[in-house]
């Protein structure tokens, strides 16, 4: 396959950045999208050019490090992470546009790499439970209804890749925040801090300059882990309940 790539190049956080077009010949359809970028980078290095910087780590679809917007879709045309996207999803001769996540909360560090520290700070604000240390409790010491366990687990599969923000027309980080709120809020261990958690996490979300959610659903549609949109409804319900309860600790 011969591919024409339009890639966002940006030397650093303060550089203005621009789209640059590259030809990538002899691409195998079995290559992953990242391997295709590796091939491009080898070629660029041989030509004495700066390789295209992009984030990646496990390349198994579980770490959430990789993530670029491909032809206007976060992680590209398949609902998976960019590392699990293969070139067979494209046609010979295609022109592919590759851009970084676009959000004020995710500033570009270089080329396709963005700083997703905003997500870490949302987790720091409330995405935890207080648990005593010591020996692990018996697994059956705290019963959890199956339906709650399933819902918590579905939400817990979030890998924090940021595709929800990238895809959202409002650049909102609500699906990520809601996934964590739902994950911990469905489990008995998450109850003591449940009300304080949702308040703190929503405040941090807003402080990071994410946009507001308008329930369009682009986030859930591109989420490689299939985090359901109803987690956002759960977050809203929890926040309204926490505000109405008047509890201050």
């Amino acid at each position: 396959m011969n591919i024409t790539l339009r890639v966002w190049r940006q030397k650093g956080p303060d550089d203005k950045g621009r789209m640059v077009t590259y030809q990538v010949p002899d691409v195998s359809p079995d290559m992953s999208f990242l391997e295709m970028l590796d091939v491009l980078n080898e070629k660029l290095q041989l030509e004495g050019e700066e390789p295209v910087a992009f984030d990646h780590d496990c390349r198994e679809g579980i770490c959430g490090a990789c993530g670029v917007v491909i032809d206007g879709e976060a992680h590209g045309p398949e609902t998976t992470t960019t590392c699990q996207l293969h070139m067979r999803s494209f046609k010979d001769g295609d022109t592919i546009t590759v851009e970084p996540w676009r959000a004020k909360a995710f500033p570009v560090i270089k080329d396709l790499v963005v700083d997703r520290g905003a997500f870490d700070r949302i987790i720091q604000a409330g995405g935890y439970i207080s648990a005593p240390t010591g020996t692990a409790p018996d697994a059956h010491a705290m019963p959890v209804p199956k339906a709650d366990a399933d819902r918590a687990f579905d939400a817990a599969t979030c890998i924090g890749c940021g595709a929800c923000v990238a895809a959202c027309p409002n650049a909102s980080g609500m699906l990520f925040t809601a996934a964590k709120v739902t994950h911990l809020g469905m489990l008995p261990q998450g109850q003591p801090e449940r009300q304080a958690r949702v308040i703190k996490m929503v405040n941090q979300h807003d402080e990071e300059d994410f946009g507001g959610c308008t329930n369009i659903g682009e986030c859930a549609a591109v989420c490689p882990k299939g985090i359901p949109l109803d987690t956002i409804s759960q977050l809203n319900r929890d926040l309204l309940g926490a505000l109405a309860s008047g509890r201050t600790e």
Binding site: D71, E99, R102, A103, K104, D209, G211, V222
Partner: peptide, 14 residues
């Protein structure tokens, strides 16, 4: 929240 716009956009779910 999105000062730089995408050059390519696609409607997935909206």
């Amino acid at each position: 929240a999105r000062p730089v716009r995408y050059q390519a956009t696609k409607r997935v779910q909206r």
